[in-house]
Nucleic acid binder design. Structure first.
Lengths: 140, 140
DNA sequence: CAACAAATGAGAAGCTTTTGCATTCTGTTA
DNA sequence: TAACAGAATGCAAAAGCTTCTCATTTGTTG
């Protein structure tokens, strides 16, 4: 459970917008939201906030390691709370649902490959795109 | 070696702009170029072409399977000629150099994971980000 | 080589994201 | 707890990248 403490530890002032954004990410069921999503959800909740602030804060949270940013296809970045466990994604290209995945075999092979090629690994992004079997998927 | 035939087989007219773009991708050393790159390179080569055409043609080539589009971090899409062999990428976050990689173990695991989660795999994108040891890298 | 559909170029427009700046808020100090 | 300095916010403008519009040009086919 994240709180104002985490914001403070990141060297940021604990402001209302930041707390609200963090809380929203915390309770977000989908897990992966765009800046626009955050904006609309907060507006719907009756909050007053500017889109520029959302972008600024999300970027700051990212630098602080509180959230992770992903560039799925479609031009828009999506953010999710960083709970400390790295994982990759599998995205349904029909309904947009995102599931998380982690596989040690893949992780290990990446390290080996990078070493072979003389790269140090700072990060990686694996995203599988396909069709899921969720009930509501076919409809959308 | 690609040619006008490939363009025609894609159901597209064999026009000057398309031939030039295909030729440029063919001879491109870097392999991964943005639409802007293609535009500037063609202008430098004395060709007359519009940026809108580049985008249109690259998108058409992508649909036709002639080129592949990648969304590395940084907002810009990069394109490369599709030579029929799927591969992933390792990108240097200091100098921007891109190397290709392919690993059957990773490919297989992805299929397994997707199956376990009830997804059919249509595509995937694995990109490793790190620092390389190329001679000119540290400098940049 | 005439005729038609497709393709092009130039600029406008669309989206997402960033920036500038005046105002407001936080955290700290007295 | 009042006051202050610096940080943060909101708004609007601006900046990328990409797509669209439309008049003009170019391939292709008969």
């Amino acid at each position: 459970m994240m709180s104002g403490e985490d914001i403070r530890n990141a060297g940021l002032k604990v402001t209302l917008p930041r707390v609200k954004i963090l809380a929203l990410l915390e309770q977000s069921k989908q897990g992966h939201v765009s800046a626009e999503d955050v904006y609309k959800l907060l507006l719907d909740a009756g909050e007053e906030i500017g889109l520029a602030t959302i972008y600024r804060v999300l970027t700051q949270f990212e630098s602080a390691g509180l959230v992770t940013r992903h560039h799925f296809e479609g031009g828009q970045s999506v953010f999710e709370l960083d709970r400390g466990e790295h994982h990759d994604h599998i995205v349904c290209i029909r309904c947009g649902r995102v599931e998380e995945l982690f596989d040690q075999t893949i992780e290990d092979r990446q390290q080996e490959i990078a070493r072979e090629k003389g790269f140090s690994v700072e990060a990686h992004a694996l995203t599988i795109y396909g069709y899921c079997q969720a009930p509501g998927c076919r409809a959308s």
